[in-house]
Design a protein around this nucleic acid. Structure first.
Lengths: 184, 184
DNA sequence: GTACGCATGTAATAGGTTACATGATTGA
DNA sequence: TCAATCATGTAACCTATTACATGCGTAC
């Protein structure tokens, strides 16, 4: 059960509502985990029940009332315990790669269109992550920030996300080009 | 339901038993999908029931009897149909990244050890994929192979797997180095 | 004689997705 | 007025993991 640890990690340096968490999980946090809103709301309630987070109601004037959650000491201890266990290897699991594996038997134009679309998606995310990294660094050089700045956890995972999306972008563009050249 | 399509794609150019498939899914095919043996045996039976693969028994002298599966015309049509649907974006989902996200709050030596271990794992897989790509190319240059050789589907997905593992390796090494330098 | 590889599963549980539901406010 | 955003869920279903089971052959 690692979603709960992903939620705890995402909530470490800030107090967030379920709704804000879903936004976070669609952007930066998707660098290390991805989840649907329903799952996050359910997990937050379970985490609160188990004492790993506490929520407080915030009544707003123009917006619906929301609940902000933060990690408790018990939650941090749970994360620390999780960290001592060996990490499972991570694997790619991707519809698009399944399709490319079968490329020799399938309609090439359809594949090229999907590769192009995915490349654009990856490029947009890469740009976003580049911007997020710049913001986290503030005015400092990367070296200075990594040596003495902080928090660096979110910076390092964002850097992995950037490299992943750059890899996606480059591979999609190259693969589309190869399939196009073959079709001629 | 994409495991079935991953299995179909893996079975396209060769006839495999369930056991051989599990080996394939631990190595090359893990580039685009990952599954446990139990899941594969179950999926093969479902695919056969639905007419997307056919199995034939092969009695062996010294080894237990096995069943070899190959994709039927209906199976290929199902794959083609799957390919016309938009591919869902793929996300990283990784224990180790969850831990690094929380790095500022956790025990650094434990993290460094896990990053080092993961780097070694990634390096081993990268080496394996490099070798597999060489084998698929045969004597040809990459350009020549990609222009006129084949099948290129497995080559292209393997190339993505290689880039992914190189990304893992580099990021793990860099992250471990940064955490070490900070601890001093 | 013991561990490992071949070969195939069942059963129980955990984790994730899809579809559906509600209701207010703000901006185009 | 229509779509989007804020805010939170329930229910049904599908997918994946973990634990357990079996039995023979070969290599150390």
């Amino acid at each position: 059960m690692a979603l709960r640890h992903a939620v705890l990690a995402a909530l470490l340096d800030r107090e967030l509502s379920g709704y804000q968490l879903t936004k976070t999980f669609d952007l930066g946090v998707a660098n290390f985990w991805h989840a649907r809103p329903q799952q996050l709301y359910a997990e937050l309630n379970r985490l609160e029940r188990d004492g790993y987070v506490t929520g407080r109601e915030v009544v707003q004037e123009t917006r619906p009332t929301k609940r902000l959650f933060r990690v408790t000491d018990a939650g941090l201890a749970e994360l620390a315990h999780f960290t001592t266990a060996a990490a499972k290897p991570s694997f790619i699991r991707d519809d698009l790669l399944v399709k490319v594996q079968a490329a020799d038997h399938l309609d090439t134009p359809t594949l090229i269109a999907q590769l192009t679309e995915r490349a654009a998606f990856a490029r947009a995310r890469a740009d976003l992550f580049t911007e997020m990294l710049r913001t986290m660094r503030g005015g400092r050089t990367e070296e200075e920030f990594l040596r003495h700045g902080g928090p660096i956890g979110p910076y390092l995972t964002c850097a992995r996300g950037l490299a992943f999306e750059e890899g996606n972008r480059d591979w999609c563009e190259r693969t589309a080009r190869i399939l196009r050249d073959r079709a001629r």
